[in-house]
Amino acid sequence: MEIARHWRLKQQRYGLVGEVCPHCDYKIFPPRDVCPNCGDEAKTQYAFSGKGEVFSFTTIYEAPTGYDANAPYTVAIVKLDEGPMVTAQLTDLGDQPIEIGMPVEMVTRKMRNDGDERGIIVYGYKFRPFGFVPQR
């Protein structure tokens, strides 16, 4: 059981809450204490829009414990519109082909059980193809 850990990360997991550096305005995700751009201390919260594009991706057939029930699944590095990149599963793909550069949006999904089915359900961000939403 790692409930405290999952609980601690809920803002990142549910809302892509990272940081904006108060010194150089660099957008940071995941949050960290030292800005990777200017080296100053960063702690101002910043919620990312959840929009981005696929930097690269692959499919996992032999999954680690806790994820094997969902295999095969696709994992990508997503470049967020605000700059940083994030590792995340792609979901809701159906039969849709994936391409580098494809626009995606964040959704909140079940990640795994904490331990087995008696443990809490861990929820977090994944990304899915963006585009069926009517454009304004």
């Binding site: 930097f55 690269s56 680690p64 969902n70 990508a76 590792t87 990640m111 977090g124 994944k126």
Partner: peptide, 20 residues
């Protein structure tokens, strides 16, 4: 917290780099 949590494996990480 941010990679393994997504079900990432070492092979998948290499595949992501290789594809790009």
């Amino acid at each position: 917290d941010y990679e393994a949590m997504q079900g990432l494996t070492a092979t998948a990480q290499a595949a992501i780099i290789m594809r790009r």
